[in-house]
Design a protein around this nucleic acid. Structure first.
Lengths: 211, 211
DNA sequence: TAGATTGTTAATCGATTAACAATC
DNA sequence: TAGATTGTTAATCGATTAACAATC
């Protein structure tokens, strides 16, 4: 019995893309069937976890046989990527913002970057990855007209804290947040995926120094 | 009684940079003392967690009084950043690599980027963020001579899988891994911090679509 | 039917939260 | 001394792992 998606543990959701990547590889290698224990060995996890995870979505396997790779591939693909991509906007067209813009437009499935916003006269009116860069002051009108669902925050903390309330108001549902501003506690109806590069490398430093 | 650092739970370690950021802010605002519950309210967590976390390192507070911000700031700073920075090398000087190079050299405490490596003739011999770009074939000699402790992997999965065994052999202790190659299971004596941007945005997409 | 492997329930483990004794 | 707040132990919660019945 498929779980309602709201009840699926976040750790399971975060593992989905990894499953997808490995299953895609198997599919491309022409492997037809795989068992939970074989897949677990590949991923470096346990067969139990693989089966528990898949069963959050109703289970993709066949008892006694295993998982059909093509069926699994299609199922994971359907879960992760709908046929209509999610419209996203980029806030902050600095060095990181430009790199992320390129990443989204060239290497990511399921998203469509439709505009970018900045405050610098130097970049407003130009484009990044074939996407126009507008003045932040036009954000409200743009959102009203195009209803983007996701905002990618590549601005410093201060800018993010100023813009966040507006972005909620304009109907942004999801944030890919590279800033240090804390969006988490905002609302139950929005989702936030934080990428804190500074925290990431700092914790690596701690661990390396205390090896 | 201070915990041996090896026994400190990873989730606690990963929270350290965030504590540091908030305490730094308090320090800069001239706040002298803070209680675990006040800090918890700021961070959006519980006073219990704050105290438990700090007590992994012996505890920084004074009963009945709270935490001295300047003492706390100094303690967290000492935990996260030693006076001698960690020497790091960058593998892969593409778009992402260049952005990360700039980030490490300009925005990160505790690390020193000392060289970059690539396979492309177009970039070898040039520099990124004032760091020379060498041919990957010179990696072994460079590591023998300079003993970098951390490698930042900004290459595609294939390149990472080819280079990883060498990097272990050359004495690299820590990896900041932006590739999809799985370093995790390699050894107990190395630490890996993965930044899987593709997985990150994909899981965001799933959650946005199923709000 | 026997063997294999899933789906699912039960047990374990670890992390978070709550409670409280120590102490400033 | 009384009030406050920590350090630390105990209870809870959730996620992972193990076990097993269902079934291909």
């Amino acid at each position: 019995m498929p779980n309602s998606y709201e009840t699926i543990p976040l750790p399971v959701i975060k593992r989905l893309p990894r499953y997808y990547r490995y299953v895609e590889g198997l599919h491309q290698h022409g492997i037809a069937t795989i068992s939970s224990s074989e897949l677990a060995a590949l991923l470096g996890t346990t067969a139990s976890q693989v089966r528990q995870d898949f069963n959050c979505f109703g289970g993709f396997g066949q008892q006694g046989v295993g998982y059909s790779v093509s069926h699994l591939y299609k199922s994971l693909s359907n879960l992760l990527f709908s046929d209509t991509p999610i419209d996203a906007i980029l806030i902050g067209v600095g060095r990181l913002g430009r790199t992320i813009a390129h990443f989204i437009t060239h290497e990511v499935k399921g998203f469509s970057l439709i505009a970018a916003f900045d405050t610098s006269e130097k970049i407003i009116g130009r484009s990044v990855s074939d996407v126009p860069v507008y003045d932040v002051s036009t954000l409200q009108n743009f959102c009203k007209e195009h209803s983007p669902q996701v905002a990618v925050l590549c601005v410093p903390q201060e800018g993010a804290s100023k813009l966040a309330p507006s972005l909620f108001a304009y109907g942004i549902k999801g944030f890919w947040n590279f800033s240090h501003y804390d969006l988490a506690s905002a609302s139950k109806d929005i989702v936030v995926e934080n990428v804190h590069l500074g925290d990431s490398i700092s914790s690596l430093g701690f661990r390396v120094r205390n090896l």
